[in-house]
């Protein structure tokens, strides 16, 4: 990580600042995703691509699939110096495909597919969240850790509610942001949604840290 470099161009108005902030956060999200992909790819022994990265106001919610689409997911809380949540989700059909990617030795040890899927998803969620939060922690200079994963089989709408729950429970958090990206696992093709939500105060600290430590992002 390279601290102390100059920003690309000066930012003047409030609107420019917001655009620049979100652009920087998208680049940070891409860094976090690359860090996670390296580890997940090593675990599953399959090539993985990152498909897109977006940062939006958390109030916008997740507009992904029809609200009633049944999904398989793991949800992890973010703890340490802030709150938040991280979700890793795929359709039930995608989950069946993912389950088949488990190493043979694991299939022998855990022959029941539902049990195997849950174990695999929890491990993937833990690996993803830890490596993803490492990048945000380094940049923001604060300790962000995942909680143990929670395995869920819910509709897209219910998953979105669970993801955004920390914001609904606490005081209003106007600067809260939703970070979304997708992982595409090749052969067989499987698409996985990765979404995280950070409250406004955490977003401000991440931005402050990133502007200081990695101004080239903005």
């Amino acid at each position: 990580m390279s601290c102390g470099r100059q920003s690309k161009k000066p930012v003047t108005g409030e609107s420019d600042r917001r655009t620049s902030d979100d652009a920087g956060l998208v680049r940070l999200l891409e860094m976090a995703m690359r860090n996670s992909v390296e580890k997940i790819s090593a675990m599953l022994q399959v090539p993985i691509l990152i498909d897109g990265a977006a940062v939006t106001p958390a109030a916008a919610g997740l507009i992904e699939l029809p609200a009633s689409t049944p999904c398989t997911a793991v949800l992890l809380g973010i703890r340490g110096e802030t709150g938040g949540n991280l979700l890793m989700s795929l359709t039930n059909a995608g989950a069946v495909t993912l389950c088949e990617m488990a190493p043979d030795e694991f299939k022998q040890y855990m022959p029941e597919p539902a049990e195997r899927l849950q174990a695999l998803m929890e491990e993937l969620g833990n690996l993803l969240a830890s490596t993803y939060l490492d990048v945000f922690s380094d940049v923001a200079g604060m300790r962000l850790l995942p909680t143990p994963p929670r395995f869920l089989r819910l509709s897209t709408e219910a998953l979105c509610e669970s993801l955004l729950a920390p914001l609904a429970e606490g005081p209003a958090s106007p600067g809260a942001r939703l970070f979304t990206s997708h992982l595409v696992l090749r052969s067989p093709l499987t698409r996985m949604l990765i979404a995280s939500v950070f409250p406004g105060d955490a977003v401000r600290r991440i931005l402050e840290g990133a502007r200081k430590c990695m101004p080239e992002l903005f």
Binding site: K39, L127, S130, T131, D134, S137, D138, R143
Partner: peptide, 9 residues
């Protein structure tokens, strides 16, 4: 043996 790679940890 952890997935967390933060130096502080």
């Amino acid at each position: 043996c952890s997935a967390i790679g933060q130096e502080k940890m």
